[in-house]
Design a protein around this nucleic acid. Structure first.
Lengths: 128, 128
DNA sequence: AATTAATTACGAAAAACTTCGTAGCACAAA
DNA sequence: TTTGTGCTACGAAGTTTTTCGTAATTAATT
């Protein structure tokens, strides 16, 4: 079956976010993006990405001297995996409590609320 | 203002969960509870709780020789704090995307769905 | 060709987090 | 009293994660 890829660390997740958002990228590009938010050395980013490569979280193309990395894990899959663990650790598995808290505290646009309503309707129909 | 208490680590969060669930407890009690889920040494738990005390995450009563610890941080407050960071790190701040993913993947009871609907209605009314 | 600039590789230090062993103390049991 | 049990304190080791410095290589520039 599928090789078990480890849960990314926080720093690794930042790199994945850039890759998911912008597609395959060089270390330079990723480091530039990360640097917009916080100070981070080039070799620090490089080393992290090499580690992620070893773990199977990233793959890379080495045709050129300038390697191009891309995520080997899907965004939604990873988010789901992290979400499950988060709900378990933080809300003792009570996903609905978390949803309520997220809804209650966030300024949600009418369009988004409608989306959620539609989703709920869909789920309710399936349960009948 | 409020002293800034650091975000609990994973191991610390496990201890907080026991305290939130059962109220003020001894190290022995907490360690027993944690041991139900995974092997963990007594002094390991003790040390962690002493560190949490230093950080201000816990407080304790030392009237008796057997110290009684309790959480110095509220469950909902902490959950909210962790939720905000999680949404930011994992969903780039897209709380609604997370909610949809949580709803979509969880077997949600009709009662729970109704609760969410009610909450949405309430939010929509407030926005008018 | 020589110099400069940008890149990868990689060991190792630094920092953060977790686990453990031992000492010391208090109280109960023998 | 002596022994045993259970607790706290705490340094330190172990592990994981993050950061950094240096060397080597390649490509571009002069």
């Amino acid at each position: 079956m599928n090789e078990q890829i480890p849960k990314p660390t926080e720093a690794e997740l930042e790199i994945l976010q850039v890759l998911w958002q912008h597609g395959p990228s060089t270390v330079r590009f990723i480091n530039d993006k990360l640097s917009e938010q916080r100070e981070v050395g080039y070799t620090t980013t490089l080393k992290l990405m090499q580690i992620m490569l070893e773990k199977g979280i990233l793959v890379r193309n080495t045709d050129s001297k300038i390697h191009v990395y891309r995520a080997a894990v899907g965004e939604s899959d990873t988010q789901q995996q992290l979400l499950d663990k988060f709900v378990e650790a933080t809300f003792r598995g009570a996903a609905m409590k978390m949803v309520m808290q997220a809804l209650g505290n966030h300024k949600t646009s009418p369009a988004e609320l409608d989306e959620i309503k539609a989703l709920i309707d869909k789920i309710e129909k399936e349960q009948k």
